[in-house]
Amino acid sequence: MTLTADQPATTAPARKVVMNRAIREALDWELANDPAVFLMGEDLGKFGGVYGTATGFFDKYGEDRVRDTPISEAGFMAAAAGAAMSGMKPIVELMFIDFMGVCLDPIYNFIAKHAVHTGGKQDMPVLIMAGIGGGYCDASQHSQTLFATFAHLPGLKVVAPTTAYDARGTLHAAMRDPGPVLYLMHKELLGLGLWGTMPEASSNVSDAYFEVPLGKAFVRREGTDITLVGLASMTHVASRVAKTLEGEGYSAEVIDLCSVVPLDRKTVIDSVRKTKRLVVIDEDYRTCGVAGEVIASVVEEIGTELIAPPQRVAFLDTPIPFARPLEKFARPDEDKLLKAAMRTLKHA
């Protein structure tokens, strides 16, 4: 199969779409263009997926290619590994990343390590999709992001797109990758009212094939006084804070990591070399997290050039509370990021 990135049609008016539509269109393209691709997951078939990412696929592609599974994550994740070894390209939806505990062995010990176990002779083209993130009172087992958990053990690529455009482009890039990719969908970004919807996540996306590279961070806003680094919905939080800072007379640069693995350290270091101040906002737990990794990566290279200590704004080290005021207290948000940014900017 030869693939070329279609240029977005110039005659059609630009469409603004929500993220779950962009994902659905990407999956539709993959199913239509590659007979080795199939989907599997809980409520993914007849129901179309809890995130609406597979609506209509069961009737369009049939039950062999759009498979409802029992509530048996260990079973279907291991089946995906076997299918990939046999030449298929499985796309598996693990409804909530929080459920990874019941299928961690196939993910970590088989899917992530297979290329190394076979001396690089066999690919493992599995795409694992999962919903992440909280902020809507779903408590400790349905609100986590767990970026660092999957960033820590080598073998998986990990991507968490911020906009509908990136969601479509990174999904196609992940499907062209010979290795396994964990594709994280923040519930706040998908366009489902139930989980709250950040309007910034909707973007212009042509209904044509294109790729957004994995392992590349994006500068969402240019600035000179401070670098704010975000991931998934926290990127939009950082952009909102950058606007507030502009009103205070400060110019903030906003970087969207987009991929957790590979982590694009260079884009962050290049930015901080210019601004000399750094705050990272991360919805995952604070200790041993991606925010700490980003800060360490910058300090290792250019630590002596910083004019203020870098700051982390991350989830408190506690199981995510159910009660709305407690979740709000523990979760990073605009107020907490603004305070950390001001502390950094006013550091003498």
Binding site: P13, R15, K16, V17, G191, G193, T197, S202
Partner: peptide
């Protein structure tokens, strides 16, 4: 939720 096309689009 969203206007997929802007006001004035054909």
């Amino acid at each position: 939720l969203t206007w997929i096309y802007p006001d004035g689009a054909e």
